[in-house]
Design a protein around this nucleic acid. Structure first.
Lengths: 250, 250
DNA sequence: TGACTAAAATGAGCCAGATCAAATAAGGGA
DNA sequence: TCCCTTATTTGATCTGGCTCATTTTAGTCA
């Protein structure tokens, strides 16, 4: 009855030159940091950026490397991971176009604390930390925006700490699925598809479990027909149930 | 042989009027935010602040209350806690003079995400969020500083997430003890004393365990003569061992 | 379309740490 | 110095989720 299935994930193929100077200026204005800048200021700021393309799986920078650049995702998805000595990974964040990563110009912020990897083909802008510091001092609105964004991330990360301590793995998985579908969700025939390649292992690393446990739980969801999944993808069929579980009192 | 023991903790009694306008300006310059401001700018900024005294246990603000003030600890210690529906608490941070809390002026930051409680008698400054926003726009150095501080907290909190997922409770307790002694440590006859009242329950809430488990672990440390403790206080007698445990490969 | 490979699903056993229940003891107050 | 409250300690038991090992797929590629 069913044809051979193939990934419902979009194969994001970025064309050659997509990461060029021309496109760049255009996109820069859409980055939250710079939203309040005038056209001309934007152009000045743009001078300091360099653009670079990455293929899926490329390491953008490594933990422990000397941190000297602030980066902004312009196209594609980028994941941030921390490795531990015991060989466990912690998936800190999955970034979308418009989001920043790398080092903010802070004192003693000499090493990157995490590894950044292109999760799909991606185009990334970068500025030197010193240049960015100048930008911050010159355009207070950029600094305020950066502060807001960072404060927001701090809250999220505190929320995650709270969840890690108090909710079950099942609840936490429901929670990331909700977050991911809010961020990357796209309606498709199989349900609300999370438009990023994401293995069970990666899902587990976001939530703080093992791939096995994550798999068991996803299977359970599937039995109840709340999600549909395959290799590296998950789509949500019953948003309400999943959201309920992610809320308090699952 | 030994006299009746009493808490080695200092009873921080703040005198009346300690929290007055006069003292205030003096202290404001010591707050990291404002370190780079000139005397006269400092005075202008000071206009916007109000000072207020709190006794031990006083609630400074509650989770879910509308957030409208940014606060700065001027004297005493303040703890930030998150409560969960299940009745568990998460102790997010223990603040020292000079540190900020409350709401940064960010969009949609309408509710406090945590409850702030005076852990000792304390003096706290506050500014309206709008006023602070103006300060940020007017003095970029303040904004940059705020950004640095917030980014630093973000890193800490990511580090904590990593630890929660990968280290044992024993390791994590050793880790907070190390952090707390770096921050609040004071040499005393009983060892490097953490100069803040801190119950086992609170220790547990910082680390993500139960009071019982925390107690068992502290007992173990005590047997090895690494720490000495009593009600609401802990002093470290063997910093090296504790630090080793908190490091990787305990 | 069939073969092949890495991802995913499953099974069985085990343990750190949570829970529940009780016994102790620290240290403030009079 | 004694009393009393409430933190702390300790014991016994239970379990979610981790581990290790194996079997099944999904989906790509030729």
């Amino acid at each position: 009855m069913s044809k051979r299935r193939e990934t419902p994930l979009k194969n994001i193929k970025l064309e050659k030159g997509h990461c060029s100077i021309g496109v760049r200026l255009n996109k820069l204005g859409m980055v939250p940091f710079f939203q309040e800048l005038s056209e001309s200021d934007l152009e000045k700021v743009n001078q300091h950026f360099r653009a670079r393309h990455f293929d899926r799986g490329d390491v953008i920078y490594r933990e422990e490397e000397t941190a000297s650049l602030l980066r902004i995702v312009v196209a594609g998805k980028v994941k941030l991971v921390r490795h531990t000595l015991e060989g466990k990974d912690v998936l800190i964040d999955m970034l979308q176009p418009g989001e920043y990563f790398g080092s903010l110009p802070s004192i003693g912020d000499e090493k990157y604390m995490e590894t950044a990897i292109a999760q799909t083909q991606a185009c990334v802008l970068s500025v030197g930390t010193d240049d960015f510091r100048n930008i911050l001092n010159q355009y207070p609105s950029v600094a305020v925006k950066a502060l807001e964004i960072t404060a927001g991330r701090l809250k999220e990360s505190q929320e995650q700490i709270k969840q890690l301590r108090t909710r079950s793995v099942e609840n936490r998985i429901a929670h990331v699925l909700t977050m991911l579908s809010d961020k990357f969700g796209e309606e498709s025939e199989v349900g609300l598809l999370i438009q990023v390649p994401l293995s069970r292992k990666e899902l587990a690393d976001m939530v703080g479990t093992t791939a096995e446990t994550a798999s068991r739980i996803i299977s359970r969801f599937q039995e109840k027909d709340w999600v549909s999944t395959g290799r590296q993808w998950i789509a949500i069929k019953n948003q309400e149930k999943i959201r309920d579980l992610s809320q308090d009192k699952g």
